[in-house]
């Protein structure tokens, strides 16, 4: 009797103590997140929900009057609630065009950016004189390319100017690739092919400007390749070419996925892509509902495309299991 009455409470106390410790740690976890949580609800989730609501509201009711927005919902009957999307996809003269061109451009240039940045990262990872300077130059776009400076040096200044500013782009430009392809006779095989080549070549030097972060991430991944792998490869007499395909690429592949996602998100959310520009111009016209519908459909399409491609790429990635 006496023994059991002693052991029982002890066991119980033990349990409650451990439980409360875990719960206390969980509470501390919430405590660490509290600040962010408040901010996210206020400055992210509520606005996000509201903008989703705007998609299904009457466009005219959202135009700010003297008394502010009225915020009237669209009628539910007869697919009336899709009116904004109908407007965006059927009536708006530019949206669909811009959407297709942005999707096409991104899908074409993303692989190029990845290949290019991996190539540069491999070079910058080798030992040579002046490597520090070369790295500094190649990461320079990280500082500049996100700002309005890029618009100006890109010659994108005609918005208010008298005549087209595109000719005053100070980015390095040349027709040499086009001319080479024309010389080889590739250009005139079919119109579709030519237009594909054109999107790639006109922007070929833009790639350099858009791959700063990607180079950085690849470089970091390259430096994480264990020296033992390199040693083994050189003992076996692997050439640089084989080393790249059999050692570098598998080790870097998780970062290829990360870079892929980063590149796509970066391209899609850039304020200077044409869909975003269209959304902005709609917002400036006080067409909030249309703008919301545009941006949400765009966002969903992008996420869908991203999910599909990531799913495909994920199957070819080598994850090192320790």
């Amino acid at each position: 009797m006496a023994e059991s009455s002693i052991s029982k409470p002890r066991k119980l106390r033990n349990q409650t103590h451990r439980l409360s410790y875990e719960r206390r740690k969980a509470l501390y976890g919430y405590g660490f997140l509290a600040l962010w949580l408040v901010g996210t609800i206020l400055f992210f989730l509520i606005p996000l929900g509201k903008s989703l609501c705007y998609c299904f509201m009457d466009n005219n009711s959202l135009k700010p009057d003297v008394g502010g927005m009225r915020e009237a919902w669209l009628s539910i009957s007869d697919f009336g609630w899709l009116a904004n999307f109908r407007y965006v996809f059927v009536q708006d003269p530019y949206y669909k065009q811009h959407l297709i061109s942005v999707l096409k451009d991104t899908l074409l240039t993303t692989p190029l950016i990845l290949i290019f940045s991996l190539f540069i990262a491999v070079i910058l990872n080798q030992k040579f004189k002046g490597r520090g300077f070369a790295r500094a130059v190649f990461f320079l776009p990280v500082i500049i390319a996100t700002g309005p400076v890029y618009n100006i040096i890109n010659g994108d200044i005609a918005a208010t100017g008298a005549d087209s500013g595109a000719q005053f782009s100070t980015l390095f430009e040349t027709d040499i690739v086009d001319e080479l392809l024309e010389f080889l006779g590739v250009m005139n095989i079919s119109d579709n092919l030519s237009s594909v080549i054109n999107t790639v070549t006109t922007n070929i030097f833009g790639l350099v400007w858009n791959s700063g972060i990607q180079i950085l991430i690849f470089l970091a991944a390259l430096q994480n390749i264990p020296p033992s792998a390199k040693e083994a490869a050189s003992m076996e007499g692997a050439t640089a070419w084989e080393y790249f395909w059999k050692i570098t690429l598998p080790y870097v592949s998780p970062m290829i996925l990360a870079n892929f996602i980063y590149t796509i998100i970066d391209a899609f959310t850039a304020a200077d892509n044409s869909v975003m520009a269209r959304v902005l111009s709609k917002q400036l016209d006080w067409d909030y509902a249309y703008a919301a519908a545009m941006v949400w459909s765009y966002f969903l399409i992008v996420i869908l495309a991203l999910a599909i491609t990531v799913g495909i790429i994920n199957r070819y990635i080598f994850y090192e299991v320790d």
Binding site: F44, L280, F299
Partner: peptide
């Protein structure tokens, strides 16, 4: 993750109202 994915343009107008 959603914060990384959602462009600012999506939430800018409601945020202005906030």
């Amino acid at each position: 993750i959603l914060m990384i994915l959602v462009p600012v343009q999506v939430i800018s107008i409601p945020l202005y109202m906030t």
